[in-house]
Design a protein around this nucleic acid. Structure first.
Length: 362
DNA sequence: AAGTCGGGGAC
DNA sequence: GTCCCAGACTT
């Protein structure tokens, strides 16, 4: 059997296997006792980026307080938000209310009965539209949530980074193929998410008792823990840039940045970078090259703090202005030059420096 | 494509 | 501490 037909064989048995697994392992959850699109929609919105255990009591309280979409539409906004309190992502609650009013007022309290129709509603994206369309109306459209990414990446050995647009298309296309083999779309969608939540978990999946063990690419290649691939978003690093701004008349001491770092070829001042914030000039350890300059000069004003946010760094700038005596020439460290105000204007500079020149410089 | 929105549980 | 959760929306 060649690779192509082998992969197709796995695809064909995937949905029935999960549907069988689901029958034996499904949890008894309140939203699984209804096909009311309102209650299913409510549960899906509550469960967006939220664990079942956390969302369940909220769902029960909402159903109790607002049994129908019209009840929700007529709800007091503040009372609704109070019920939502502690769930996070509060725009979900506001969109919920807005959409309930829209359905009640504009659609005669009837939910759109198709994936495409549901997708037009505020707060309903691709996942939730698929969930409601399949669970409430039986439409054969696949849900693709965090569980599905994980299960599919492992079983089919997909190594694409799931945070990219290309990967999302890959998974959506595969999910679309897989659901064609399902006996019941709603049950299949429930089963793959339940499977991801209970069996094919992010850490220490239960591969030894897994019905897909034989056909799972990740298990067969020992890569369960490596899949799915998900790019870590680079943490925002704090950097403290303490600038000594030497001024003589209208001239400023600047240099071109040439290090392998941000702002290459742009011009800035004498920089002392620290790992921690510094309040005063006296807290800075001055390098030998500038000790003499600082002692000759006069510190003007206090520290000027300015922050610039970059993609992966937060630059906390702190500017200390030091006026040098007029008349006699002042020698600068290597790489630095005196620049007149006009020259400074024309030099390419980081936004942080320009902001300081415009707003912070006395 | 990247940023923003949250609280909580598992490790 | 990190990661992730039945994602959607804005820029």
């Amino acid at each position: 059997m060649d690779w192509q037909s082998d992969a197709n064989a796995v695809k064909a048995t995937f949905a029935p296997t999960l549907e069988g697994w689901y029958e034996r392992h499904r949890r008894d959850l309140p939203w699984r006792h209804t096909r009311d699109p309102y209650r299913i929609w409510l549960s899906e919105v509550i469960l967006q980026q939220t664990r079942v255990a956390q969302g369940k009591p909220y769902y029960e309280r909402f159903v109790e307080s607002y049994p129908t979409v019209t009840d929700l539409a007529n709800a007091d906004e503040r009372e609704l938000l109070r019920l939502w309190q502690g769930l996070g992502y509060y725009s979900r609650a506001r969109n919920l209310h807005q959409t309930a009013r829209y359905i009640t007022d504009q659609l005669g309290a009837e939910f759109p009965a198709t994936f495409a129709g549901l997708l037009t509603l505020k707060g309903i994206g691709v996942y939730t539209a698929a969930a409601v369309a399949s669970f409430a109306f039986g439409e054969r459209v696949p849900v693709v949530d965090g569980n599905v990414y994980r299960v599919l990446a492992r079983v089919f050995g997909i190594t694409e980074d799931i945070t990219t647009t290309g990967a999302k298309k890959t998974f959506a296309k595969l999910a679309e193929q897989l659901i064609q083999h399902a006996e019941d779309p709603a049950t299949y969608n429930q089963s793959i998410m339940e499977f991801g939540a209970i069996q094919c978990t992010p850490v220490s999946p239960d591969c030894l008792l897994c019905p897909l063990q034989q056909s799972c690419n990740a298990y067969q290649t020992g890569r369960q823990m490596r899949l799915p691939v998900k790019a870590k978003k680079a943490p925002v690093r704090d950097r403290y840039f303490n600038y000594l701004v030497f001024r003589q008349g209208d001239r400023l001491a600047m240099r071109e940045r040439t290090d392998r770092d941000i702002w290459q070829n742009l011009h800035d001042f004498w920089l002392i970078e620290t790992d921690e914030p510094v309040d005063a000039l006296t807290d800075l350890v001055l390098p030998e090259e500038v000790v003499g300059l600082v002692s000759q000069g006069r510190v003007t004003g206090g520290a000027v703090p300015l922050t610039q946010l970059l993609s992966h760094q937060r630059i906390r700038g702190q500017f200390f202005l030091i006026d040098m005596p007029d008349g006699l020439p002042v020698a600068l460290p290597a790489g630095f030059n005196w620049h007149s105000a006009d020259e400074v204007n024309r030099l390419p500079k980081p936004v942080l420096i320009t902001t300081y020149l415009n707003e912070g410089l006395g």
